[in-house]
Write a protein that binds this DNA or RNA. Structure first.
Lengths: 212, 212
DNA sequence: CAGCCGTCTTGACGGTTGTCCAAATTATTT
DNA sequence: AAATAATTTGGACAACCGTCAAGACGGCTG
């Protein structure tokens, strides 16, 4: 009897703790999303916790309560954002019935991303550069990089499949290529170069058939 | 007579001013080189003028005397360093008598760069990311990027030439590819991934024949 | 030698930063 | 309803930042 009561109490305790954790984490994400606004605007270095708080509905103390550190916060932010990123092209990949359809769907998404989410992506590049100096960032950054590489690879293999071919290069090389192109286009776009987007699209359109 | 004296005086004045300018600029470069030590270690955001001064033989006041700004200093630093960078492979390009010779020479330099100058290159990537936020950096960064693209293009055209072919892609795409590969390898290398260098070499060795 | 000029040193200033904490408020349990 | 725990607030703190300016130093010129 006593033992049963103990067991039941334990189950309840475990359940409530899990619930608390979930709630805690949901709050973290909520705060991270608010922080992303300011981070995307100013970059990692120039953004202080106070500034993040001021541009949001929260006080700066809350951030310290939910995040052990400034690094902890940033990591959570970019992790959260990139989790959405890696699925961006999946719909196009699964629904496209021909090479052309895939190409156009991919290019459209690419252009929209460059135009509408430039600030978020520059934050990603910022963080990736910081990872070269700050070991605390490396694990997360390398992990995100891997998942982005996989995302590009899904597109490439599907594209090749639709032409009854196989990709001509490795996943790493392919990701490096697209990442390099996107990064360059992003910088030009942010520098108000109006040809940045069309140039990127032309380049990718020309490249796709040659590598698959 | 008076007019002649004036002219002579003007010539002297112009000459001495040019000399002063030259001396002034030489000092700037000297300071920039000292600053690069600390910048390569800590990155742009974490490095203060005081820290730069402390890790060098100069006081922090001198830096303010020779540079109007922190941005001014950093720009001078990376400009100076990258001016040397873009000539790194030129000797290999001009002396190589065959495709193999060019390949091996290029790969050797590439590996040496990754190993010996990792800190300087991460600073470059840092600055390039900052340029996405800080307009003051953009002009210099875009210019350096262009000259790096030209450097890669010189290698590619020479490589193609030695095989009586022409490069199969644009300068921009080629630079994006190599830059992306190098950046990824650099991050892995800094994260103590011992396979970073050999993996990069393998990748480039496989890639070269396919793009030219 | 006196005066000037370019160079450099040193210390101080206002402002911002990350961090911490005690108190207030709210939610949850007993 | 009382008590306990979780959450939130807003201010205090020391450390640090970029910038600046007053003055010191040393060589050059008149």
């Amino acid at each position: 009897m006593a033992r049963q009561a103990t067991r039941a109490a334990q189950r309840v305790a475990v359940a409530t703790e899990a619930l608390r954790d979930e709630k805690f984490n949901a709050r973290r994400v909520e705060l991270a999303e608010a922080a992303l606004e300011t981070l995307g605007e100013l970059g990692f270095a120039r953004t202080s916790l106070r500034e993040i708080a001021q541009n949001s509905a929260f006080t700066h103390g809350v951030f310290h309560y939910y995040f052990s550190d400034k690094l902890d916060l940033i990591c959570c932010c970019v992790r959260h954002y990139k989790a959405k990123c890696v699925t961006r092209y999946d719909e196009v990949v699964t629904t496209a019935k021909s090479r052309d359809e895939l190409t156009e769907g991919f290019l459209a998404k690419l252009a929209a991303t460059l135009r509408d989410e430039a600030r978020m992506h520059r934050l990603w590049y910022d963080l990736r550069s910081q990872a070269m100096f700050e070991p605390a960032f490396r694990k997360d950054v390398l992990e995100i990089d891997k998942s982005l590489e996989a995302m590009i690879w899904r597109i490439a293999t599907r594209y090749a499949e639709l032409g009854n071919k196989k990709p001509a290069s490795s996943p790493a090389a392919l990701y490096a290529l697209f990442d390099g192109l996107f990064q360059s286009a992003l910088l030009r776009h942010l520098a108000n170069d109006e040809k940045a987007v069309p140039d990127l699209l032309d380049e990718v359109r020309r490249l796709l058939p040659t590598i698959c």
